[in-house]
Design a binder for these strands. Sequence first.
DNA 1: CTATTTACTCAGATCGTTTGACTTAATCGC
DNA 2: GCGATTAAGTCAAACGATCTGAGTAAATAG
Lengths: 387, 387
Amino acid sequence: MLKGTNQEVGRPHNRRIVLETIRQHGPLPRVEIARRIGLTTQTVSTITSELHERGFVALRPGVPKGRGFPAPSLEINPDGGYACGVYVTPRGLEAGLINLSGKVLARKAVSAPQMSADTAFAHIGAMVREMVADCPRERFIGAGMAMPGPFDIESMSFVGPTTMEGWRGVDVGDRLQKAVGYPAFVEVDSAAAAHCERLYGVGEELFNFYYLYMGVGLGGCVIYDGQVIRGAWGNAGEIGHVPLVPDGDPCPCGNHGCLERYLSLEAYARRTPVIGEAGWLEETAPLLRSAIVTIENLFDPETIVLGGLAPVELRLKLLALTADLPNSLAARQDRQHPRVILSRCGTDAVLRGAASLAITQVFSPRLPAPPRAAGDLFAKAGRARIE
Amino acid sequence: MLKGTNQEVGRPHNRRIVLETIRQHGPLPRVEIARRIGLTTQTVSTITSELHERGFVALRPGVPKGRGFPAPSLEINPDGGYACGVYVTPRGLEAGLINLSGKVLARKAVSAPQMSADTAFAHIGAMVREMVADCPRERFIGAGMAMPGPFDIESMSFVGPTTMEGWRGVDVGDRLQKAVGYPAFVEVDSAAAAHCERLYGVGEELFNFYYLYMGVGLGGCVIYDGQVIRGAWGNAGEIGHVPLVPDGDPCPCGNHGCLERYLSLEAYARRTPVIGEAGWLEETAPLLRSAIVTIENLFDPETIVLGGLAPVELRLKLLALTADLPNSLAARQDRQHPRVILSRCGTDAVLRGAASLAITQVFSPRLPAPPRAAGDLFAKAGRARIE
DNA sequence: CTATTTACTCAGATCGTTTGACTTAATCGC
DNA sequence: GCGATTAAGTCAAACGATCTGAGTAAATAG
């Protein structure tokens, strides 16, 4: 569980830190990177020359700004690497190729309801191979795949509108790995979308937020300290099955009054023909507000990001319903952001998030927290070897 | 935000890892520690000799077990360090001295309703000084303090049964630091209790759980990967204010139907005179079950730990109500633990948790996650310096 | 045109971890 | 019983990533 560190661990870690800092805040001169990550310019220089050599970062010539050497800036080289993202749903497959900047360069899709796992992985293998062929082979990093959650919970995974039939007991990670032949990773769709938002959306400013994913069902994901909180088995975030309405609508999960029976695209599609969109919004508003209060009181996020498959227009209407929220611990004086905001990543969030999983896993810091200087018992003598 | 690592950071980190491994799994021989944390025996030897020198660990002579050198084991020296915990409530103060094993050695209390901050910190300063006097001065590590949450939320902190009057705008951390003159830390009571459970209770086996704290109000805390998840402002865990009953009882927080209006010692005290304990249990059961389903679906923990100030007898009765739980993603086949279990730490949980904050902050690993070997792009060349 | 400032680089020093040989203390097998 | 084997631990030298301090390049200030 707990692991020690040595130079062999430290170097890759620092490399990831440097690259992630450049990715998130670049273009940056070396001194500035060094200042941020707490290492010397020399070290950053060594690391960045390696990253440059490998083509992951590009050097932008320095522009004179006052006295002194005009510092060249480092930025991500978008074409330094590519990754594939696959989104598997009960309606079919979507796949995309992204570059290091998270831009979608190519896209493929297979439409077929309730694909079997065998068929799906055959398609996935083929799609990924085609996409890899479109980019420099040695620059392909890996693939990520997203699916509606939860995984491996028979009583929940295989019923309801987000059901994947015939996928019972399939070792998805292993199958993906074998199908693509590159490093492969799997994530629940809402977590993948949250990951995208963290990397390419609001995550540029926010390190702690809750991502509410309004898809066919309703999912969510906490980003805490910049990290996706996945739960013990990677299934955290099934906010759609929070029982907010006692004795409410029966849900395929077996309970009654689950939130996603009211707040989800499935609910929208089911209700609007009956009562119209305005009626649905009115009916859903109190539940949305309750959901927000629940999230705020449980997670204390900086903000809640409203994302998912739902079209922007609809999400804007939902956002409007949150103008007048009930009290919660989010009602603090010194808020930097509204309590609810819109996602900045488009409908490709899941795809890009899934693909960037591979990039993150291969590159990014699973960070060592800096030991705080809080009464260090080893302050001085710690440096001397004990005889 | 992201920090690099070097030898200066690495050594203290490894020291913490070694100590934490010994604390949690000791007594252990050096080889075994090395195996667990992924460093060499030599390094562990160097570090442990330092820890031994400083009196934090004790050496237990090796007992012959089969061939080879009989390995001496290392274990925590309980008297290697002491810390103070303070629990501040609207009813008064409780303070305690614990040793490195988390045992409560001394205890003090001041009973006085709605103490002002000035009075409280005067008392706290005095109590801590007395306790420090009872242990070797140089072995005193620091103090931790717990309070009912949430902090700094005017609209919620200062109303209701857990209210602290006259504490508005008080910089608690700073005041505590000044009052005790040692490293000082502050935490919400439920998080402190969860921390205690992590260190000295179920945390010995579980790294991912949700701690439900049934006190005057109702709080909770996620332990994820062995770490307390505190939220953006340290207030995560206000599960008591999840609105589970639409149009339910009005709550001092301003909303209606908050969970803690039904499930808390305050609710128990208010309702049992009217309908008796059995009546209360019956009335509360569906809400408790809903709360559990909510937690499970949002956090996907290994288990939920039922703790808090509520007496064991009452918690046992509540536990009995969870024998037949609704479906959730926790209903998996391969569960290692029941969905709900009782806390193993007694009523001192908050006190011990608060005190051990100081120990943890000074010693324990805020861990660097080991970079997984997933398609390392720098696999070989990473070791060679680039010219 | 010189002095100053700033970013960067080179080469050597530093220091925690690793490596490999050695020591110690137990059991196994003849 | 006694040498061979096994296992944990220690010593001293090697390793290697980062740091340190001197040196270089390119701008501005005066």
